Amino acid sequence: MDDDRMRLADYITAHATRIVDEAELFASTQLGDRVKLDSETLRDHLPQILEVVVAEMRAAQTPRSERRKAEGRSDTPASSPLSPAQWHGRLRAKSGFTIDLLVAEYRALRASVLRLWAADHGTEATSFDDMMRFNQAVDQAIAESVAHYAAEAETWRNIFLGVLGHDLRGPLTAILLTSAHMARMANDAPMSRLTRRLVMSGERMATLLDDLLDFSRTSLGVGLRVKRGDADLVRELHDEVEMLRMAWPGARIEFAAPGAVTGHFDASRIREAIANLVNNAVKYGASHGDIRVVLGRDADAVVIEVGNLGTTIPDELIATMFDPLRRGNGGGDAIDDGTSLGLGLFVVREVARAHDGEITVASSTEGTVFTMRLPWRAPVGTGD
């Protein structure tokens, strides 16, 4: 069969080597000195991608599948092995390609095929149909590559954040120990205030690093680490509220609880969650209103509420406020100092999830209440 009578799918198969050669040349010229890759790496998966494109072009197609391909969507089950395009996207992310270079590769691949094909076949009716099928198949490959490029890049970003947070803990611990020792040695009041400020700044940095590590772990699918133990939540939350009162002397923080609420929980994580909620209430709530921390228990769960007065939170903000790297809008009497990573409420949500519980929020003109429900577990060794 000569080129004059070939369909586009057959043409691609017959000229695959030349097409891939041109795609490799384009990729190498676009990278310049930014990334050094050998020929084999530059060509990786391109022949297989062309094979998939040809197979898609030859397969029967319903109107529904045609529309989905045009939109860059696939009917392939999520559990299926990665396609060549998906692998290509992941490897390009590891190789240092930017996402615009990844898309440019496909643009060059598409242009090479259509330029050669049009030069040989003109504008026959069958050519238009073939080119439409070809474009749909390439669009699908682009969508798969970009999605998996983004996933791979996100994974490495979270690994970097985790390593960074872990490596910074060593020198920060040394700073905290040294500043605490200096605080004990300080005799005069001015020096004492300076060393105490140094200690508090170091503790603040430690909290930020802890939040960063928690975010990195959950983003990588590891989940928040909890260490359950027998806990008296009344005593634990009372102590935490006392510390928060010292941290926020201008705020009125109330605490109410029944006589006893014990169970098998990670008390440290729960205290961390409550501290984040109270800090959030102080920063974004009304300066004249009390902040209420209420601990209770129903038949199935421990219930902790943190409420305050302030501007009503819009529904659209409530829908995303537990997402990572988001911060308050600074409305009302907000006193956010700009040092937050926007991970506080995210950590609260993950603490609840790690205890198989949930966190919800209700906001109205009467105030905003965050409610954490944690399924109750009896202390170890009890018969409850």
Rank of each mutant, 00 (worst) to 15 (best):
V241P: 03
K94E: 09
A23P: 02
P84R: 07
M182P: 01
E366I: 07
A125E: 12
V199L: 07
G332P: 09
P84T: 09
L374C: 00
I274T: 14
A137N: 10
A286L: 08
E236F: 08
K94F: 05
L317V: 15
Y149I: 07
M372P: 00
H288S: 11
S201P: 02
L209V: 09
H45D: 12
G328K: 04
V369N: 06
A319G: 03
T13V: 09
R353T: 10
H88I: 03
V347P: 01
P249Q: 04
G307I: 11
D266K: 04
A78P: 04
K36Y: 12
A151E: 15
K283L: 09
D4R: 14
R225A: 06
V222T: 08
V361H: 06
T155V: 11
Q86F: 01
R92I: 04
H166Q: 15
I142W: 07
E71I: 00
F370A: 00
L82E: 13
D21I: 08
P375M: 06
I318M: 14
E350A: 02
I175R: 10
F134I: 00
V241R: 04
A362I: 05
S192R: 13
D3M: 03
D129T: 13
P258A: 03
E56P: 00
L31P: 02
F322G: 01
R204S: 12
L213W: 01
L42M: 11
R297C: 07
M243Y: 07
H288W: 07
G96I: 06
L213S: 11
A189V: 13
A150C: 06
A70R: 14
R133V: 01
E66T: 12
V163I: 12
E242K: 10
A299K: 04
L101N: 05
M182N: 05
F26I: 00
D336A: 15
S268Q: 13
T311N: 04
D315L: 04
G89A: 05
A354E: 01
Q30T: 12
R235D: 08
L213G: 11
D44I: 14
E24M: 07
L91E: 15
H148Q: 11
N329G: 13
L309C: 03
R133Y: 08
L50M: 08
H121C: 04
V361M: 11
D33E: 13
D129Q: 07
L309P: 06
F322P: 04
T207L: 05
A251T: 11
R68C: 00
G383I: 02
W156K: 01
N187W: 08
T360V: 13
E22L: 03
T178H: 09
S363C: 09
L198Y: 02
A147V: 02
N187H: 11
E366A: 14
D139A: 09
R252K: 14
R68F: 15
H238Q: 13
M243N: 11
G259W: 01
V138L: 08
V52F: 03
H264Q: 10
A143C: 10
E350F: 04
D33T: 14
V222H: 14
L91Y: 13
L237Y: 04
G307N: 01
L309H: 08
S39N: 09
G332A: 04
Y11W: 15
W376A: 03
G296Q: 07
A260Y: 00
I313A: 03
R92S: 00
G32V: 05
A9W: 06
A118I: 12
